[in-house]
Design a protein around this nucleic acid. Structure first.
Lengths: 264, 264
DNA sequence: CGGGCGTTTGAAGGATGTCAATGATAGTGG
DNA sequence: CCACTATCATTGACATCCTTCAAACGCCCG
């Protein structure tokens, strides 16, 4: 029942063109049509590898549903997740380079993929698309540097608090009209992945989370679901001031939020 | 004698246009001329701030000589250096965003600066330049993610070894024809900056360096100068395999390891 | 029901940050 | 040219956060 191979599916075009900020969101109908023909839908199961590290010939694409993780690893197996990819985020590396990150599905996902060389050609022929790509990569770069700050300067406790707040901000961006009580956060990845993302171990993550719970800042609903009970305390524990104002202002920050997942 | 303010200086054009890989290295003479007119030379002294964090209206530019550091900081003063900027590197953020890093001179430096909006306009009107900018930003993104691996996975000892090897590779890229004995490395920044770059403290940096010296891997010439005596030991201490081959071969070698017969 | 995997929890040890004192260096002004 | 001061680097002692190792627990799925 589960289709794993590449499929030609014009309907899916909507998925990667729909979002206004997407690289593929071009105005020209003919171009949209062309993009649609180039795009192939692929369904992957959790744990499946989409792009291998250091691979030469590969693909780029857009996440339609699910969560991908982009990771780099060392010879001895240590691994760092350098980005989470959520719906509308692009993955894969355009233009030559032997830099390596691998991309894996963190959950069952649906992807909209393009042959890399073909997509590059598309970019070269459409400066407007390439411009959007530049903006997108710049945002990713900002996000990566922000994560360097997290990894280089913050304690594990602070990192976990920051992570929860980022997820909460993204998740509640629209619904939280004015109800800052119990925001519910669903973490889209396992403890192990959280650890690899936050530069620590699953054990430390677990301890930090349960300490927050004991301190009454959050409520642990299940392994992956939390309720933020005392937000200001959590913000304080994160060591980051940028979470100080719960809303409005954050509309401006939306592009940056997107950085959590990041595009390419 | 030291000129600190902005100066109009056509001669300096060479500095930011000369390098083939630079964003400004365009073919069209008229465009080069235009870029030259837009460019202003500015000399800054060590410690001077070039761009403040979170600044709206600002500049972009190219480093002509000296070293700049790009840093992000937290409310309580903790600081992470997210990039070192060497000659030919661009600094500043094109296109709107309130992401903040500050840029400071790590040594006395000469810069070639552009008004940001004007430079953006230049990019928009020259897709070829914007393409080069994209490639350049993609490389920066790769570098940032590699640094995330360093900050998230490596021990302080490994980070210091990696840092030395990166400097050595860059510095000796051309001269070391076949003399892999004592490569001399000059660190362009203070211990405090090294610490902020490697996500640790000056004390830990100092200890790691002197431990390497006691172990006979390096020789400490002065605070900022080192000789790499036993390179393979240092590579081993870095935990990174990518330094295995001293030079160029290293690219070829890696491809071969992956089973790709052809080399470009 | 039983096995396997992911999570949690505890105990112990290590790596690294912190604090403090000393030593080295450079720039300053007499 | 020589103190003198300020800054940076080094070194040691100590505290602690965090990883590591091990075991128990819960949950999903066969």
């Amino acid at each position: 029942m589960q289709q794993t191979g590449p499929v030609h599916n014009p309907l899916s075009n909507l998925l990667c063109i729909a979002d206004g900020s997407s690289v593929c969101a071009v105005a020209d109908p003919a171009l949209r049509e062309k993009i649609g023909r180039m795009c192939r839908v692929r369904k992957v199961k959790a744990g499946e590898t989409v792009i291998e590290e250091g691979r030469k010939r590969s693909i780029v694409g857009v996440v339609s549903s699910g969560v991908l993780k982009m990771a780099k690893s060392m010879a001895d197996g240590r691994q760092q997740i350098v980005g989470l990819l959520l719906p509308f985020d692009m993955f894969g590396r355009v233009f030559p380079s032997e830099s390596g990150s691998c991309v894996q599905a963190a959950s069952d996902s649906v992807l909209c993929t393009f042959d890399r060389p073909a997509f590059e050609e598309l970019l070269r022929q459409n400066p407007e698309m390439e411009h959007k790509m530049l903006l997108s990569v710049l945002d990713e770069l900002d996000a990566a540097r922000d994560w360097m700050l997290l990894l280089g300067c913050q304690t594990v406790r602070e990192r976990v608090a920051t992570f929860l707040l980022i997820l909460a901000r993204r998740g509640s961006a629209k619904l939280s009209g004015n109800a800052p009580h119990a925001v519910r956060v669903r973490v889209p990845i396992s403890r192990k992945d959280m650890a690899a993302y936050l530069g620590t171990t699953p054990e430390s993550i677990s301890r930090a989370l349960h300490k927050f719970a004991r301190e009454g800042m959050i409520k642990i609903v299940d392994h992956l679901t939390f309720e933020i009970v005392r937000r200001e305390a959590l913000v304080n524990a994160s060591g980051r001031e940028e979470f100080d104002r719960p809303e409005e202002e954050h509309r401006v920050h939306r592009l940056k939020e997107r950085g959590l997942a990041t595009v390419k």
